[in-house]
Design a protein around this nucleic acid. Sequence first.
DNA 1: TAGATTGTTAATCGATTAACAATC
DNA 2: TAGATTGTTAATCGATTAACAATC
Lengths: 214, 214
Amino acid sequence: MGPLISVKTIGRLSLYRRLLNRLSTSGTQNVYSHQLAALAGGTAAQVRRDMMAIGYMGSPKRGYDVRELIESIGNFLDSAQDQGVALVGIGNLGRAIMAYFTGRRPKLHIVAAFDSDPYKANRVILGCRCYPIAQLAEIVRELNITVGIVCVPANEAQAVADSLVRAGVTGILNFAPVPLRVGPGVYVEDIDMTMSLEKVAYFARTGSEREVLT
Amino acid sequence: MGPLISVKTIGRLSLYRRLLNRLSTSGTQNVYSHQLAALAGGTAAQVRRDMMAIGYMGSPKRGYDVRELIESIGNFLDSAQDQGVALVGIGNLGRAIMAYFTGRRPKLHIVAAFDSDPYKANRVILGCRCYPIAQLAEIVRELNITVGIVCVPANEAQAVADSLVRAGVTGILNFAPVPLRVGPGVYVEDIDMTMSLEKVAYFARTGSEREVLT
DNA sequence: TAGATTGTTAATCGATTAACAATC
DNA sequence: TAGATTGTTAATCGATTAACAATC
């Protein structure tokens, strides 16, 4: 059992790594907490706390070593073995997400896609095999898939989530515009684009002095 | 100047309204805080706090009136006039988002799209006129657009955001995998799908007892 | 009335911020 | 050394939770 790390910290680590990769390719070898904070849109103290949380120590003289830090974050975030991902719902959004994630992370692959529409199933999209949703449980078990991405309409989302969990999935990224209810062993991250757009529209209208709240 | 409401509350109101609309179409007339909380994945106390924040009062006997509550939330969230939205970046994700939001909210329309690729510009997608990015400032001002959606690659995102803000946009929904820096008068909501997927993969692997943290 | 739900206030909890000694 | 940055601890802040009187 590793150290206890919050959801927010895990998310920031993902962001830090991407920012560090960009720095690295442009030749930067060291970075100070306030520099990384400026890039990430946070505070220097928060960056240092996050680094302490994963047990990576900097030095007062040179800050953090970019290469070592990327590696330390990878030790935390990345799985040792390949992790399979299932995408459910191959509509516009599903296909865009498939294209977006393909080849982005070496250990994290979308290895199967599912759709209730038989015309969408039984083909190959971006190198990923698509199946009818009736085969979901079978394929998820067979391929040892642990992560699901839900891109189906709101009224199908809960049933899809239930099927995924029953088949052994323990983490779900949910794009359906409705919260999912799952058991205690399963982590769900909701991406609610409608909510986000309405928030933006609201604060675009009423001014951003309220942005400071929370 | 209306009452002070937090970003989180505004987001939840958006969710409540959608859930209430579903209840309404299925004939439900009243709802209790714990029922709405169960649907939204929150607590009853939180729902009641949110209702108090927008000044809508329930009754101990009948809880909240669904129809009135939908209307009260609308008074808060919705603009009196139409609000124009600009979408920048008409790749896979951009087109999916365009399809996703088209016709979803009566007062919130994507009225212009932009892309740096001339082959994508100067056409109509889903009823929305597309322009070369060179015309962004001009069109945004002309159409009084106040909300921008950024779907361009990471290395172009900050420049696009700067252009949008200069042209008068005061709210940005950012899908580019990099945080945007904007001045104080502008609200930015980041949707970082890579971060979200890595979080899900991490907690799918390490178990969800840590999910409780934060 | 009895009872569940409501609005409201006080207590708790966690995260952020500020302060500071240690380090290169 | 001087000085900026680091890890660490204490103070602050905000939100959530719990407790409770008021209401239909």
